[in-house]
């Protein structure tokens, strides 16, 4: 061993090169410092795809939230059957298809008129996006909260709890959930409503959210369990224990700040998946149903007419593709920004 030098108290090494050097900035002043979060935000801002996707996603959420306002300014609503109220031959022809070309697009009906029912496509789509995003967002929040709580509990407690929770997660993940939805939703409705009763739209929404959540929490819980299991062994957790930290403090102050990355990544990837799942279920007739405006319902309606009137299919279809694509790209960018080592 080299003999120790007496200069122990002198500040010595220069700043670590790992992250800081790659960023084009003058040497940081002593008081200037960037948190891992700030570094991630800088990386994200420089990612053009991510930024564009974020704008698109925000745009969708804004129009979903302000749908009633937009509809008011535009002067129509998604329920009135304009095509049928008007005398035959003005908007729809005898067969129920729009008379004007391109699905009846004109100054009054920006996105055209729905075949047969004659509703306004523009407001129907706005409200449809609103319903879909609301269901998907609520589901994502529930799934994230439940997944985080279960995953952290299992990972932190370990032992029997962890073993039991992990088996439950295995079972939930191995379940054919789509089949279950189709087979089981009518049963759930049957529990609360008589066969001849009208099922209110909110009840369908709640049922969907509950079912999607019941099958959705497991994957995020499993991921977080693994992360906590790894973090729990890290020495900084032991360092906190040595100073007498309570389990609550360790979970909230030591572990959780290190888990925001996987939580954020997982939920940004989960939301578009729930949008498509919700649409798929509506399409299969077990989700939201006509006349409640909904993305999935619209696509289902569109599928009935697309050989004769493709326009009606294009609006919900293309908008959904744009949304899901943008959201997934956003998820990738969020991951790259937060976790630069995981770049593909």
């Amino acid at each position: 061993m080299t003999p120790p030098t007496p200069s122990a108290a002198a500040p010595l090494e220069v700043t670590d090169e790992t992250v800081e050097k790659s960023i084009t900035s003058p040497a940081p002043k002593a008081t200037e410092s960037r948190s891992p979060g700030q570094l991630a935000w800088r990386r994200f801002k420089r990612d053009r795809t991510g930024f564009t996707s974020a704008c698109i996603v925000i745009f969708f959420f804004v129009i979903a939230i302000t749908a009633p306002l937009i509809a008011k300014l535009y002067g129509k609503n998604p329920y009135t059957q304009y095509g049928q109220d008007a005398p035959i031959g003005t908007l729809l022809n005898d067969a129920g298809f729009p008379i004007k070309p391109n699905g009846g697009i004109d100054g009054d009906f920006w996105f055209g008129v729905e075949p047969s029912m004659g509703r306004d496509v523009f407001t129907f789509l706005l409200y449809g996006i609103r319903t879909s995003l609301m269901i998907a967002t609520v589901t994502t929040i529930l799934v994230t909260v439940i997944g985080v709580v279960v995953g952290i509990t299992a990972g932190y407690l370990g032992g029997r709890t962890d073993y039991f929770v992990s088996r439950v997660i295995d079972i939930v993940l191995s379940f054919p959930s789509t089949l279950f939805f189709i087979a089981f939703t009518p049963v759930v409705y049957g529990l609360f409503y008589a066969a001849d009763e009208e099922i209110p739209a909110w009840a369908r929404g709640v049922c969907l959210i509950v079912l999607l959540t019941a099958f959705g929490w497991a994957s995020i819980a499993r991921l977080l369990r693994g992360q906590v299991l790894a973090l729990r062994e890290r020495e900084f957790v032991e360092a906190a224990k040595v100073t007498g930290a309570s389990p609550a403090r360790i979970i909230f102050k030591e572990l959780l700040p290190n888990l925001w990355t996987p939580i954020l990544i997982q939920s940004t990837l989960a939301l578009p998946a729930f949008v498509t799942a919700e649409a798929g279920l509506a399409f299969l007739g077990v989700g939201i149903q006509d006349p409640t405006p909904d993305w999935g319902v619209m696509i289902q309606r569109g599928a009935q007419f697309y050989t004769d009137d493709i326009t009606f299919m294009i609006f919900p279809g293309v908008s959904m593709i744009i949304f899901v694509l943008a959201f997934n790209l956003l998820g990738d960018s969020v991951r790259d920004a937060l976790d630069p080592k995981s770049k593909r």
């Binding site: 010595l12 220069v14 960037r34």
Partner: peptide
């Protein structure tokens, strides 16, 4: 003055 810095800004010895 390094009070507000994060661990990644330091070397192993520091």
């Amino acid at each position: 003055e390094h009070y507000n810095r994060f661990p990644h800004e330091f070397s192993g010895g520091q």
